[in-house]
Amino acid sequence: MQEIDFTNLGLPKGTKIAIIGGHGGIGAAMTTRAREAGADVIAFDTPTAISERGEIPGVLNLEIDVLYETSVSDAAKAVHKQWGEVDAVVYVSGIGDADTPTLDYSVERWDKVQAVNLRGAFLATQSFAPLLNRGTGTLTFIGSTVAIQPPPGLGAYSASKAGVVAFAKSVAKELAPDIRVNVVSPGITETAFLAGGSGQGLGGQPISGESWFGDEAYQKRLAMILQGRLANPDDIVAPTLFLMGAGARYITGQTIHVNGGLYLP
């Protein structure tokens, strides 16, 4: 059993982390903060996302396309070659879309959202979970509040993230007690994801709530959040990194909601 250091409940120094989707809004913040905390990090993302964000200093920046099984398995082989074993794997990769009624949604758009958000999580689990340290390894998926509180117009995205939650619970049971598996579920976060995700020609820049929703709709959303603001990436990164440490050693199969009070289970 891991010993808990109550003087430092954060990420243990020297933790080896593979972040899939490490150049998006949340992913890049996670990559940077983990490195600052003393972790060794390999950040995977699409060539477009890496180009838009730029290579993140101090980490190994490698390409992946979660749509393709061979790309994911090759990424896992790169981790094995670099480290042998890995302490933590985080699946951040995901794409969203503008609000669109289900009856107007194309099959092609539906399939791509499911492929990146859910099928990619499955492929990553198959390839990366065998590399995780037994006894201390962690696998974390980034979910979404809409998985359990789906709004109109986000049927495809909500369904994909609900699938991630169910998938994580199943995997947590399969890999217990050696590996802990959890979901961190953000509320609305000010990143390029609001406009569909990184790698979408947005230069990797944050998108403000006002610019994306419009002022009136933005104010309505703020009124629903107890904290009175949208999340920023660090709000999501901190609890994700905490789950990798001994302070979270008895947490598995859970969805950690990080939404400022937008959703109260």
Rank of each mutant, 00 (worst) to 15 (best):
K112S: 10
M30V: 08
T140E: 04
F128Q: 01
E85T: 15
T138Y: 01
D87R: 12
I95G: 02
L123R: 11
A76Q: 00
W83S: 10
L131W: 07
G84N: 13
L131F: 08
D65T: 05
T100I: 07
V146M: 13
G137S: 09
A78N: 06
I50N: 01
N117M: 10
G143L: 02
G137A: 13
A39G: 14
Y105G: 04
D40E: 15
V90C: 08
E63T: 15
E52K: 02
R119I: 03
G38F: 07
L154V: 11
A78L: 14
T32C: 05
A159V: 13
S106K: 14
I64V: 15
R134V: 07
A43R: 00
M30Q: 15
A124F: 07
I142P: 00
F122I: 15
V90H: 02
A147E: 12
L118D: 01
A43H: 04
Y68L: 15
A75Y: 02
W83A: 14
L154N: 01
R33G: 05
L118F: 05
R35H: 13
A78G: 08
K161G: 06
P151W: 01
G54P: 13
K77G: 07
D40G: 08
T140A: 05
K112E: 12
V164F: 00
S71I: 03
V107Y: 14
V165H: 06
A98I: 06
S106W: 04
G155R: 00
R33T: 14
A34K: 07
S93F: 02
L139I: 11
Q114E: 08
L118C: 11
K161L: 09
G137E: 00
V59C: 09
I50R: 02
L67D: 04
L123H: 07
P101S: 12
G54C: 12
L103P: 04
K81R: 10
N61V: 07
T70A: 14
A37V: 09
G58V: 09
V89I: 14
V72M: 03
A49P: 05
F128A: 04
E52H: 10
E63H: 05
N61I: 09
Q126C: 04
I142E: 01
G153C: 07
R33H: 05
F128S: 02
V146S: 06
D87Q: 11
I56K: 00
